[in-house]
Design a protein around this nucleic acid. Structure first.
Lengths: 344, 344
DNA sequence: TTGAAAGCGGTACCAC
DNA sequence: GTGGTACCGCTTTCAA
C-alpha cells in the first residue's frame, strides 16, 4: 500500500501522493540510488538482474514517472529547445516548416516546447523564457532585442536563433527577408510592361511585420525606374475588396502585388465583378503559391516562397549548442521566385 | 565580481556561470531568504526599504532570472497547462481557437506550453507529458487512452481535458463530434432533393480522424432514406481532382459533400472544367466556412463550424484544477450549421 | 553490487 | 527585519 504522508484531514482532496523514486526504492527494498541506476540504465554501474526486475516492477506498480524538473535541476541543464509561439496566426507554409523543425529536433533528442507568452513585451518576455532555462531558444518574428538575447545567454541558453527579417546582436539569425518577395514580384510586373503598380497592405494587425518589408521590396525592385507604387490598404473581407475595386478607375493601376494569394484571390474576384479584366487591364500577383490560386481563372501568378528545411535549422541549433562560443551564424534562407501563370 | 565556481580549466567554454539567488544575496550582502522575500514581494514579511533596493540592484546587475524548475520543485506544483501539439496541421479555425485559449489561460495566470512529442505513441507520450508535472493537460485529437489519463493524474495533473471526437474515461471532454458536420450537410442535400451523394475523403494521412466521423455523419443523416452514399478518395492536388471529375458520368452523383471548403474548391474547379454544372447537375457543399469559398462562382455552400470560445475552455480548466475531485465534465461543443449559398 | 549523502536553486518556517 | 536551515525529487561520487 502507498502511504499518504502529510495529508491534513482538512485537505479537500485526499489526492494520492505522486510517487517518487523514494517510494519505488521502498517498495523494491533498495536505495534510491539503485532505483536511479536501474531506471536510467547507467552503464557505469552493474546491478544484478533480480534487483533490476524488482525495481522495474515496483516502478510499474506505482505508476512512477520521473520528475523532469528535478532531473534537470540536478543535471544543471536540459535538452529543451524553447520556441515562443508566434503572435500572428501563420499560414500553412510556416506551419509546415515548424512541424518539420520539431521533428528534426526531436530526432536529435531535443525536446521542443512552444511557450505562449502573450501580453509580455520585449525583455519581459525574454526573462519569462529564461526562467525555463532552455538550452536553445528559437525566436520567430522580431520579438527579442540584444538585451533579451543577453538575458537568455546569461541564463544558460547556449544558442539563440532568430527567425525573421533582421539579425539581432549576439544571436544566430535565419534571415527571412520578405523584401525579396516584393522585389521579385515588382521586377516581374515591370518586365511585363507594367508601370503603375499597387501593393496590397493587409489591415489585419500583426501582419505589418511581413507586409512592410514586402512593400519595401517592391520599392527597391522599382528603384530608378519610371514605375509608380500605390499602397492599397485592404481588410480581409469581401466588402472591403468591393470598395477597393470600385475605386479602381480613379486609381488607374495596371498591376497589383497583393501581399499573398489569399488577398489576391479576394481582390481578383472583386475586380472581375467590377468589370476589370485580368490580366489585360490589371495584372495581379500574389505570393505563397497556395494550391487554390491555381484553381482561379485566370490562374493566379504568385511568388513561391522557399523556407529552409527543418533539418537544416535543427542542425544549426545542434551545432550552436555544442559550440556556444562560435560566432553567430547568419543565413539568408528565404528563397523567392515568381511562378507565372495567367494573371500577369 | 562574480566567482566562477567549479569551472575546470579544461572546460572548452569558460562560460560565465548562471547567477543564482545565492549570488544575488552575496552581492547585496544579505541572506538567500531575504532575496527570496524581496523578489517575490512576500507580504508575510516586512523588509526595510534600503535592503529591498540593494537586493533589486544586485539582481539587476547580475541579470538574475529565477529558475522555474527549482521553484516549482520546491512549490510542489506549477501553473503549467500542457498542450501536446496536434500531429496534423490544422486549419485557421482551430488555430484561432488555440490562440484564444492560450490568451484566456494566461489571463488566469496559467502558463501554456505546447509540447511536441512526435514519434511517441499512446501511453509513451502520456508518460513524457507527465514528466513535466503539468497542473493540467489539454489533449487534442484522440491521442490518449484511459491508461494515459491515469498516468497523468497520478503524476499530479489536476485536470485532463480531451478535445476530440470521443470522451476518455476519467478525463473531462470537449466533444467535437465531426459527425454532426456530415449529418447537417447530408440532411441539407437530401432536403434539396439529392439522392446520390458523394463524400470526399482526403487521402492525406492523419485526416481520417476528421473525415471518418464526417462520413459517418452523412450516413447517419441519410439513414432510413432512399439516398445512396459513395465514398470519393481524393488527394489534395489538381490532377487527382481532374481524374475524379473524369469519372463523374459513370459515378452518376447529384451531390457531393467535399470534406471541407478546400477540397470543395478543388473539386468544383475540376467539375466545371469537365462540363459538370453546379449546382444543376451536381450540388456541392464544403465545410469550415472559409472566406475564399464565398469568392467562387457559384458561391460555395458550406457547413459553418462553431468552436467553443477559448474563454469557456479556460474556465473549465480552471474549475477542474480547483476541484480535481469533481466528476468529469462532458461538453458537446461543435456546432455545425449549413450556410447555403449558390452551389447547392 | 549497493547505500549514504551531498547538492542542484528556490521557498518558507522558525529563531533571533 | 533578517538569517539559518530543512526540504522539494533526482543524480552521482565515494565508501562499504
Amino acid at each position: 500500500m502507498v502511504q499518504i504522508p502529510n495529508t491534513p484531514a482538512s485537505a479537500p482532496t485526499p489526492q494520492r501522493a505522486v510517487p517518487t523514486s523514494a517510494d519505488v526504492a521502498r517498495l523494491a527494498g533498495v536505495s534510491r540510488a539503485t532505483v536511479s541506476y536501474v531506471l536510467n540504465n547507467t552503464s557505469a554501474v552493474r546491478i544484478s538482474e533480480p534487483t533490476r526486475r524488482r525495481v522495474h516492477e515496483a516502478a510499474k506498480e506505482l505508476g512512477y514517472v520521473p520528475h523532469a524538473a528535478a532531473r534537470s535541476l540536478r543535471a544543471g541543464q536540459s535538452r529543451m529547445v524553447l520556441m515562443p509561439s508566434p503572435t500572428v496566426p501563420v499560414g500553412p507554409l510556416y506551419g509546415r516548416f515548424i512541424n518539420e523543425l520539431q521533428w528534426a529536433l526531436s530526432r536529435l533528442e531535443y525536446t521542443v516546447v512552444q511557450y505562449g507568452t502573450l501580453g509580455l513585451q520585449g525583455d519581459e518576455a525574454a526573462r519569462a523564457w529564461a526562467e525555463l532555462r532552455p538550452v536553445a531558444v528559437l525566436v520567430p518574428g522580431s520579438r527579442v532585442g540584444p538585451q533579451g538575447v543577453a538575458v537568455l545567454q546569461r541564463s544558460g541558453a547556449r544558442a539563440v536563433v532568430t527567425l525573421g527579417p533582421e539579425a539581432v546582436e549576439g544571436a544566430h539569425a535565419l534571415l527571412m527577408d520578405h523584401a525579396a518577395v516584393g522585389q521579385v514580384a515588382a521586377t516581374h510586373l515591370y518586365a511585363r510592361g507594367r508601370r503603375r503598380i499597387g501593393v496590397v497592405l493587409p489591415e489585419e494587425p500583426g501582419l505589418e511585420i511581413y507586409s512592410a518589408p514586402r512593400l519595401d521590396g517592391v520599392r527597391r525592385g522599382l528603384r530608378g525606374t519610371d514605375a509608380v507604387v500605390t499602397e492599397l490598404p485592404l481588410a480581409h473581407d469581401e466588402e472591403a475588396a468591393a470598395r477597393l475595386a470600385e475605386r479602381w478607375p480613379e486609381l488607374g493601376l495596371d498591376a497589383v502585388f497583393a501581399y499573398n494569394d489569399e488577398y489576391a484571390m479576394l481582390l481578383m474576384r472583386a475586380l472581375q465583378d467590377a468589370g476589370v479584366r485580368i490580366p489585360e487591364d490589371t495584372a495581379l500577383i500574389g505570393s505563397d503559391d497556395l494550391m487554390l490560386g491555381r484553381l482561379l481563372r485566370p490562374r493566379l501568378s504568385t511568388v513561391h516562397i522557399e523556407l529552409p528545411s527543418g533539418r537544416e535549422l535543427a542542425e544549426l541549433v545542434d551545432r550552436a549548442v555544442r559550440d556556444p562560443a562560435a560566432a553567430p551564424e547568419r543565413h539568408e534562407v528565404l528563397g523567392a521566385a515568381v511562378i507565372q501563370r495567367e494573371s500577369t
